[in-house]
Structures are given as structure tokens and as C-alpha cells.
Amino acid sequence: MVSEITEQYLKIIYNLTEDGGAAKTTDIANALGVTPASVTQMIQKLAKQGYVSHEPYHGSALRARGKRIAKKIARKHRLLERFLSDMVGIETEAGHDQACRMEHGLSTEAEEALCKMMNHPSTCPHGKRIPKCERAVSCEECANVALKLSEIEEGRTATVSHLVSMNKEELCRILAMGFVPGVRVAIEKRLPLGGPIIVNIKGTRIAIARAMGDVLRMVEDT
């Protein structure tokens, strides 16, 4: 188990070296709000553990072992930022601070669910790229886990993950009905002969044509 402080350092170095080069000790100190002396001490420790390589007067760079951990933490951090900004509406800077604290406690499972729920965002609110997860499946395959409304059986509940529509009017119509990302939908009945599907959103029953419903991508509740 890697300590939180190690994760924090590795992430900062990852941030600083993302575009290549090495991370200067002063920059790391600034980013973490600590003194350069304590950074130097920590870097030496991390180098000893094989996470980073350090060249005096040049800076620190991640080694494969450190990079793996750093990438994962950066991914969690940026996903959380996206979540706090998009889904919760927290201001970007406040979101950043909170994400810094939350990222260490976030399980891999939660991280995957978060990514799926937000439909695989590629960048964080600051515009930085969100590293891909380590799983063997591609994002497209992973996205296909989301089902169309008509693929869900009667009696199940599912959460809208995202909407796929080329037609803005149709999209707005369906959004206005309350089919927004994150909303829980109970599939009550599927009417025969390609008829509509009757769903329930928070006590409101809606009959929705199949083709219209297939604009919705849902993740079935387990």
C-alpha cells in the first residue's frame, strides 16, 4: 500500500512532467505548499524506493513503477474534478482542492463507475487529459456496456448514463421530459408490436416510443 503522501508527490511530478522534461524541486514545493528542503528529502526517499529518478540541478522524473501509480491517481483526481464540476456544480478551484483529498480514498471500482457514468470524459475541467484506465477494453467497448432503453427488460430499473442523438430538437424534447443523465428510470411495461415503453421517473409515468427511447443509454441497476 502506497502512502497518501507518496501518491501526492507522484501525482505532482506526473503533472509537471506530462509534457516531457523533469520536475524542478521548487515547482514541486510550490505545488504542494511545502519547503524545497522537505521536497528534497522526500524525493530522495522516493528515488530509493524506485519510484523516481533524480538528477541534481535538473529535476525529478517518474520511473515506470512510479508512473503507474501517478497515472492512476491523476486519473482519479481528474475524474473527480470532472464529477464535482459537472455533476455537482462545484466551482473549479474548490473542486480541485476537494478532489486532492478524495482521490486517495477512491476505489478502482468507483473510479470505473465514475468514468462510465460521465461517459468517458477525456479531459479535466482545466483541460488536462484524463489518463486511460488500465483495463484491456477500449473506451468504445466499455461505453457499449450502456444499454438502449429497449434492451432493458420489464420490471428492471436503470440509470440514464448519456444521450445519443443527432437531432437537437428530439434531444431537447426528451431532456425536458426529465430523461437527464443520472436519473433513475423504472421500466414498467413494453407494449407489443413495436409499441412504446412505459417507464416511471419519480412517480411520473411516461410512454415513450422505442426509437425515441433508444436515444437514451442506460446502465442497468444491479
Binding site: 470532472r82 459537472d86 455533476m87 456544480g89 460521465m118 461517459n119 468517458h120 470524459p121 477525456s122 479531459t123 483541460g127 448519456h162 444521450l163 437537437k168 434531444l171 431537447c172 431532456l175 425536458a176 426529465g178 437527464v180 443523465p181 443520472g182 436519473v183
Partner: peptide, 18 residues
């Protein structure tokens, strides 16, 4: 939409419903 993989309309409505 490129960044969020979701239309801005969806975000606006979602925030309203939220």
C-alpha cells in the same frame, strides 16, 4: 461536447433537474 462527451443541452437540463 468534445470534452464532456455530452451535449451542453444535456448538461443544462440535468443541472435544472438536479
Amino acid at each position: 461536447e468534445g470534452q464532456h462527451k455530452e451535449s451542453i443541452q444535456a448538461h443544462i437540463q440535468r443541472d435544472r433537474f438536479g
